[in-house]
Design a protein around this nucleic acid. Sequence first.
DNA 1: CCCTGATTCGC
DNA 2: GCGAATCAGG
Length: 240
Amino acid sequence: MSWTDERIDTLKTMWEAGQTASQIAEALGQGVSRNAVIGKAHRLGLQARPSPVRANDSAATAAAAAPTPAPMPAAAPPPAPVVAAAPPPPPVAAPVAAPPRAAAPEIEDEDEAEEAAPAVVAAPPAPPQPIMRSVGPGGFLRQAPGEQQPPIAPAPPRRLVPAKPSAEIAGKTSLLDLNDRICKWPLGHPGEPDFHFCGEKVNPGFPYCVDHCGHAYQAQLPRRDRRPPPPLPFGGPRVR
DNA sequence: CCCTGATTCGC
DNA sequence: GCGAATCAGG
């Protein structure tokens, strides 16, 4: 098999989504080895990924004792400082952190007085939802030990407004329409006339909307129990 | 051992 | 350009 545009695109997408070379190779199937994937990725200039090896070269191994133990579904790639208002349902697993917020019961002023007694079940105000926030593929953003701070701002438990797709989006979201707030999940295939992007509002902190985050970031199962190659969002049958 | 990505180097 | 072989850290 050769590297067709589609396969390259799959490789890129998956690589940037933080998939491992093995997974990508597996997904591409058809006699593509892990090495082939890595080799290709590098030739494509898709570097920048935390590699187990090649951590340091000289000095500066001081602090940062690798707070990230295992490779996990990576976080989002480039988006700028996330001022995210943590949404209730990040479909993703992999709780990374953010419990520190001690129960700081700030009485909500006005509005419907949240009488809710500290029941056992209901979690009225901002549940410390784990937003995947580790070292991204690019090795960005990492909190210094000093600045202990929950990665996600205490979310305003306000009312969530249903994201209504704008008319523009309803039509099609082109490459030029992409920005940090728009879901970049590709629909169709590059080169095709109707190729476009999802265009939904992103799951804050992620390049995709909540729905597609569910596709892009799968709970990392032990390789053992990865029976059914999960629905391949990449390269597979047309998604539309 | 297993995993990972990086690099090398013959093709 | 490609990818197996090899290297090396976790």
